[in-house]
Design a binder for these strands. Structure first.
Length: 222
DNA sequence: CGCCAGGGCCTCA
DNA sequence: TGAGGCCATGGC
C-alpha cells in the first residue's frame, strides 16, 4: 500500500548520501551496555546534552553499575539524573530496568529469541517501543530498525511516508524497503539522528541539507 | 521570554 | 486504539 514500493532503492540511496556526507557514525554513544540502556531511557523526549550531564553525574560517583545503582536507590538516582528532566519518573524506570537486568543479564537475554526478548523489555515500566528497540539493536545486536521523532519528521518531509503513520507502520516501511542488516540498521538510525539534529530540525535549516543538495528532498520548495 | 529536545504512561472515550 | 494530559531540565 505504501506510496513508494520502489522505495528499496530510495532508502539505500538516502543512506549512501548520508554516509558519504556525514561519515560513519559509530553509534550508540556510551561505554558499556548498561550505559547505553540508561542513555536510551534518559533521552526520552530530552536533549542529549542533558542526558550526558546526568550520565556524568552517575559516573562521577562511580555508580554506573547494576549493583551500585540498585544499592543507591530511586531517590539517589533521581538526584543524579536531574539534568535529564522527568527525573522522578526516569529514576523509577532506571531502577526498574536494573532490577530486571539483575535477574536477566544481557548475556542471558541474548540467548533468547528476538520477539521474546522484545516483549520482556516492553514489559518493563518506562521501556516503550523506541527504547526497547534501541537496546535490542545497539546492545543485543538484533536487526531491529529504530523509529524516532527524527525518522518520522525526515521521511515525511522527503515525502515517502506521512506523519500519521504510527510506530509499527514506520518500522514495517523500512523492513519492506531495506535489506535486513544489523550494521546497516545501526548506522542508518545514527545518520538519521545526526541529520535531525543538524539540518532537519523542527524549524528546518534546508539551506545546508545534504538530501536537498542531492535533490532527494524538496521540502519547502513549493 | 517561549520553544524545543533521539518518549512513555495513564485515563477516558 | 487514539487523543490528551502529564512528567521537567537546560540550551538557544
Amino acid at each position: 500500500m505504501s506510496t513508494n514500493e520502489k522505495g528499496g532503492l530510495l532508502l539505500l540511496d538516502i543512506y549512501a548520501v548520508l554516509l558519504e556526507k556525514q561519515g560513519f557514525q559509530d553509534w550508540w554513544p556510551g561505554d558499556t551496555n548498561l550505559e547505553i540502556c540508561i542513555g536510551a531511557i534518559l533521552t526520552q523526549n530530552t536533549a542529549w546534552g542533558n542526558v550526558e550531564k546526568a550520565i556524568n553525574n552517575i559516573k562521577k560517583e562511580s555508580l554506573m553499575s547494576l549493583d551500585a545503582l540498585l544499592n543507591a536507590g530511586e531517590k539517589k538516582i533521581a538526584t543524579l539524573i536531574r539534568p535529564a528532566g522527568y527525573f522522578n519518573q526516569k529514576a523509577k524506570y532506571v531502577y526498574g530496568f536494573c532490577k530486571f537486568i539483575k535477574t536477566s543479564p544481557f548475556k542471558e537475554l541474548k540467548k533468547n529469541e528476538l520477539l521474546k526478548t522484545r516483549d520482556a523489555l516492553l514489559a518493563i515500566k518506562g521501556i516503550g517501543k523506541e527504547t526497547a528497540d534501541s537496546i535490542l539493536l545497539y546492545v543485543l545486536d538484533y536487526p531491529i530498525f529504530v523509529i524516532d521523532a527524527y525518522t518520522k519528521r525526515i521521511f515525511s518531509r522527503i515525502g515517502v511516508c506521512n506523519e500519521n503513520m504510527d510506530y509499527d507502520d514506520m518500522q514495517n516501511f523500512f523492513y519492506r524497503n531495506l535489506i535486513i542488516d544489523v550494521e546497516l540498521f545501526k548506522d542508518y538510525h545514527a545518520q538519521i539522528v545526526t541529520l535531525g539534529k543538524g539540518s532537519c530540525r523542527k524549524k528546518p535549516k534546508c539551506e545546508n541539507c545534504v538530501l536537498r543538495a542531492r535533490k532527494i528532498c524538496s521540502y519547502g520548495l513549493n
